[in-house]
Simulated scan of single mutants.
Amino acid sequence: MSKKLFLRAGAIAAASTLVLAGAAGSASAHVTVSSPDAKPGGYAKLIFRVPTESDDTLTTKLVVSLPKDTPFAHVGAQVKDGWKVEKTTEKLAAPVKVGDVTLSEAITSVTWTALKGGIPANDFDEFALSVGRLPDKVDSLSFPAVQTYSDGEVVKWDAAPPASGGEEPEHPAPTLKLAAAIVPVAATTNEDKDSSDSLARILGGAGLLLGLIGLGLGLRKPAAKVQS
């Protein structure tokens, strides 16, 4: 290969690497939700990670919507320096029972607004909620969010998650997967089973042998006394 062709191939490879890196970066730069302790029927801390996908503007506002069909009886919002937090309460279409409480209204959204500045360009911040109880008959919860930038741009993170194997939407709603509590069950291996069977056979055989000895002793006639 000539030096010219070699340099051209290197340039193409480098450009391809940059394109792939950019694609990976944009795919991961979403508003997302995670939790260290979420499980059906319990209380959880929800952490919303918010990146500023811009080179010259800031994120100045975040609105997170909460489920209305499975509302939370308790919603506590993280208080952050430099941000004002507000909760919006709405009347539900029909009363919903959550644990021992029946709700006719619930907190349906939480808004954080920067009092000054915001999340800088190409940086991120995290906003937390303490909620409960989580529903116990669902495997995931979606939290549509609206992100506002300092130049007035508004991005709605509200697209439904793709079906299995489907292409991810450009602005997916933050979605939390719920994992049911797993009760440890002792697994019985074939080796354990074989050992248990062998022990049972040994004990059974020993019991039978002792039974036969006892029966033999019971059937023996007492020896005649020898008179002197």
Rank of each mutant, 00 (worst) to 15 (best):
D125P: 03
V50H: 12
F72R: 02
T89Y: 01
A106F: 01
T52C: 15
N122A: 10
G132C: 09
A128Y: 02
A128G: 09
V63M: 10
D56R: 02
D55K: 05
V63F: 03
K87F: 08
R49T: 15
A29M: 02
G42T: 00
T32K: 02
A44S: 14
R133E: 14
G76M: 11
I107R: 03
E105T: 13
G99T: 06
T89V: 11
Y43D: 15
K68L: 12
E53Q: 13
A27V: 08
H30K: 12
K39T: 13
S130W: 09
A114S: 14
S54V: 06
D81S: 11
V79H: 08
P67W: 01
T113H: 04
T111R: 09
V64T: 02
S26G: 04
T57C: 13
A38I: 07
E53H: 04
T102C: 14
L129C: 07
V85W: 03
L58T: 04
G41R: 03
V110P: 07
L58R: 10
T57W: 07
V85I: 09
S109Q: 12
V101S: 10
D123E: 07
W83S: 04
G76F: 08
D123Q: 06
V79R: 08
A94D: 09
A121Y: 05
V50I: 14
S54L: 10
H30R: 13
P95S: 01
V101W: 00
G76Q: 13
S54I: 07
L92M: 11
R49K: 15
K39S: 15
V64R: 02
T60H: 09
G82N: 06
G22I: 04
A106C: 06
W112T: 04
A93E: 15
T32M: 05
K61I: 07
D125S: 10
D56H: 08
L62Y: 05
G82D: 06
T113I: 05
V79T: 14
L66N: 12
I107H: 07
F127W: 01
A77W: 04
S104C: 04
V33T: 12
T59I: 15
T102A: 12
P95C: 01
L115R: 11
F124P: 08
